[in-house]
Simulated assay, not measured.
Amino acid sequence: MVDVEIVQVGPDEWREFREVRLASLADAPGAFGARHADWVEATEDRWRQRLTDVPCTFLARSDAGTVGVVSGALSEDGVELISMWVAPSHRGTGLTGRLVARVVAWAGALGRDTHLMVRDDNPAAIRAYEKAGFTDLGVPEGWPDDAPLERRMRHAGS
């Protein structure tokens, strides 16, 4: 396995978070609710606020730089796993599972379930989440006809 350190970050690490978040939005524009153009010119205050509003963010660091990110946002029904991304150079190394496990553990320490939404047309992500212990609950009822289909998944241990 590639030597990667996973660390939880906050507002003071906004520059490193900015770098990896912009890389993720450029690499996989259809996978996120945000767009690269929405964030590329964001101010320091906006980046810091994102890391304050979303209380759980982990970065994966290697000799190659920051190669992964995942966040956990508090929601009415638990913790929503969001902003999951691993650099192409580190896909297939188990890093996705390690990052996901950190958010699931964080949610568990709060006594909360973990859930996520994933694009229906991203079978690789769906498989990775299933491997990490999530159950596919399908597309929620009443999903808008004009929106790309997304599947809701819930962590089996939650």
Rank of each mutant, 00 (worst) to 15 (best):
M153C: 07
L22T: 00
W106M: 01
W39I: 09
W47A: 14
A105S: 12
I6Q: 08
G94K: 02
S158C: 04
D12F: 09
F32D: 14
S158F: 00
A42Q: 04
D45Y: 04
G157R: 15
S62I: 07
R91D: 13
R91F: 10
N122C: 00
P123C: 01
E76W: 01
T114E: 03
P148K: 04
T135C: 10
G72V: 09
R112H: 05
W85D: 08
V40N: 13
M153A: 05
D3K: 14
G133I: 04
L110N: 03
T96R: 08
W85N: 10
A73N: 15
E80W: 04
E13N: 07
G33L: 03
F58K: 10
R152K: 13
D53R: 06
R61G: 13
D120T: 14
H115F: 12
A156C: 09
G92E: 01
E16A: 07
A60I: 15
A109T: 14
L99K: 10
F134P: 01
V118M: 02
W14H: 12
A109P: 02
L137T: 08
A31C: 07
D63R: 15
G142C: 11
L51F: 13
P144Q: 08
A26H: 09
G33S: 10
T66W: 13
R112E: 00
D77G: 00
W143E: 15
G97I: 03
E19A: 12
I6T: 15
A109G: 15
H115M: 08
D53A: 13
L99F: 11
E16T: 06
A73F: 12
Y129T: 01
D27R: 04
E76S: 08
G30W: 05
E16V: 07
G30N: 07
F134D: 01
T57L: 09
T93D: 10
I126N: 05
G94M: 03
V79G: 07
D63T: 14
P144W: 12
E44L: 08
D53Y: 02
M153H: 05
P55K: 15
W143A: 15
L149W: 08
L95N: 12
R98Q: 11
R21K: 05
G30E: 07
F134E: 02
E19P: 00
R152P: 00
F17A: 13
D12E: 14
D45L: 13
H115N: 03
L99M: 12
V9S: 06
A132E: 05
K131Y: 07
L137D: 14
A31W: 06
A147C: 02
V69K: 05
T96F: 15
E13Y: 03
D136K: 07
V86P: 05
S158A: 06
A23S: 06
E16P: 01
I126H: 05
